Computed example of a mutant assay.
Amino acid sequence: MEILPGVGVALAKIGDTRTVVESRIGPPIHPGRSLRAVYETDPLLVLTYHADDTVELVELSHGGDQVYFDGVQLTDRFLADVVADLTARGHAGEPTGIGHRFEPGFAIFSTGSMWAGDLDPDAAEDDPRAVSEGVSVAPYDYFAE
Rank of each mutant, 00 (worst) to 15 (best):
F102D: 09
T111L: 13
D81P: 09
P95H: 05
D53A: 02
G71N: 14
F102A: 01
P104G: 05
G90Y: 12
V83Y: 15
D53F: 10
I108W: 08
Q66C: 04
T111W: 10
A88Y: 12
G71H: 11
D81F: 03
F109V: 07
D81Y: 10
E59R: 15
L57A: 12
F69T: 04
A92W: 06
L79K: 06
A84H: 12
V67F: 01
E56L: 14
P95N: 02
E94F: 03
A88F: 10
F109K: 07
F102T: 13
L79A: 05
T87W: 02
P95Q: 01
P95R: 02
D81H: 07
L74W: 04
E103N: 13
D52L: 06
P95D: 02
F69E: 01
R77N: 11
D53H: 13
F102Y: 15
T75L: 02
H100S: 12
L60F: 10
D85V: 01
S61A: 14
A80S: 05
T54D: 12
A80P: 00
R77Q: 15
T75I: 08
V72H: 01
V67D: 08
R77S: 11
E103P: 14
D70C: 09
F106L: 06
V83I: 11
F102W: 06
T75S: 07
P95C: 06
G105W: 06
G93P: 03
I98H: 14
A80C: 05
V82L: 06
F69N: 02
G64C: 06
